[in-house]
Simulated scan of single mutants.
Amino acid sequence: MTGPHAPLSLLIDNDTGIDDALALAYLAACDHVDIVAVTATPGNVDADQVAANNRALLRLCGREDVPVRIGARAPLVADLVTTPETHGPQGVGYAELPAAAFPGGPGSVVGDDAVAHWVEAARARPGELTALLTAPLTNFALALRAEPRLPWLLKSVVIMGGAFYYPGNTTPTAEWNTHVDPHAFKEVFAAYEEAAQAGLPDEQLPILCSLEATERYELRPDLVGRLASSSGAEPERVHEDDAAGARSTSSNPLIRYLSDALRFYFEFHRAYDQGFIAHVHDYFAAGVAAGTLEYRTRAATVDVETEAPLLYGTTVADFRGLWQRPANARVVTWNDPEAGFAELVERVGHFARRYRNG
């Protein structure tokens, strides 16, 4: 593992989601990361299912203490579109959710006050909290409406979303998160443009992990076996010749959960002619937020198309100042997937050993 790393307090907003689940398990495995709260935005599945998925995984990771909150239940303007074909009907592929994840069972507390929770936390701890946003930006846009000083109150913001000079994964030009709620993305980047105009330091501009960076994190089936080996569990084999829907037989519950979730993701990517792989977008964004993965950025002015039907949800980045508007984001231009996957295997594998050791 890389390290040591400075302690970090993290607010997470996600739409769990297979790659969101991998990111959350990874962050739970990071000793230096204090997860202050996990809030649910509708996207891959509806908000209640997102909260259930978060509850289940936090409980599996021994983090029942982390509050789980629900905010918006629909995008700001558009109708909600979910993606069961990508992440499965429950959002986590073939992984099974324990009954305790649902209302009435033990586990992390679920409330409907996600936006208020973010605002209160940021006001109480100015300059201390890092925000990780791996979902459509609906909740964050609402939080900025409630507290326009949020860009100054947060220490750092990391966003997974967008595509620049790169094909979209939902339409020919649009990435999934921005396509689900382009109006929220537009509001967020407008708020940061206004903040930049007012003198917000560059280091507090959002770090934007767009598709050209996240699709370099192309996870292959052998990594599941490496995770199992690192955890000390029995060998785990996931292969493209396996029958569709095959399940893990691992006795390690975290390895089994991740294996079953990722198998669905492998099968989805294969069905769309991308190979038996998984683009784990949100894991990379989580590593950026945690300070454990290497990357480089370039300042840009980012805007989002919300009107033109052919380009709905498309993000545009002006890297050259042609708009003569201040930069409102730092777009990731380079990363190191090989080192990043080695970090994932070692840290999550080490974390999963606790099941073997009781």
Rank of each mutant, 00 (worst) to 15 (best):
A196S: 13
E64G: 15
H350I: 03
Y295L: 07
A213E: 05
P235R: 04
L211H: 03
E212A: 13
R59F: 07
F102H: 13
I12D: 00
G199D: 10
R149S: 15
A6W: 08
L227H: 07
L254S: 04
A299V: 08
L344A: 05
H179L: 12
T171M: 08
P253E: 08
R356P: 10
A191N: 05
S230D: 11
A163N: 07
L58R: 07
L150W: 07
L133P: 01
A114P: 00
L76G: 05
G340F: 00
L22R: 09
D282C: 14
T301G: 07
R123P: 09
E234P: 10
E193N: 00
L142E: 08
R149M: 15
L144R: 11
N252Q: 09
I207L: 14
R256Q: 13
V66M: 02
A47D: 01
V36P: 00
A37P: 01
N328I: 02
P182V: 03
N252V: 11
V81C: 10
E64W: 06
A327P: 04
D113Q: 07
D336E: 14
G111D: 15
E305P: 03
Q197I: 06
W118P: 02
R325D: 00
G358Q: 14
P7Q: 08
A190F: 05
L219D: 00
G313E: 07
R145K: 13
L10K: 00
V81I: 12
F319R: 02
L223Y: 13
G275Q: 06
Y94R: 12
S210P: 08
P182N: 09
G162E: 02
L310A: 15
P126N: 10
D181R: 03
R298Y: 04
L8K: 07
A122K: 03
V304Y: 03
R320Y: 13
A278L: 09
P148F: 06
F284N: 01
E307Q: 11
E236I: 06
V280A: 06
Y265K: 15
D181P: 01
L310N: 14
L150Y: 11
A124Q: 13
V50W: 00
G107W: 05
T178R: 02
E267K: 12
V157C: 11
G71I: 01
A146N: 05
D20Q: 13
T173D: 11
V119D: 00
L254E: 00
L142A: 02
V45K: 01
W334M: 13
E96Y: 04
V109P: 10
G111R: 14
A122V: 10
Q197H: 12
A101D: 09
T2P: 14
A95L: 09
N169W: 00
Q49Y: 01
A246N: 10
N53H: 11
V157R: 09
D303P: 05
P67F: 02
R237T: 14
G104C: 08
W323M: 10
P126H: 11
A121D: 06
L58I: 09
C30M: 08
L132A: 04
R73N: 08
A184S: 11
H5G: 09
A195G: 08
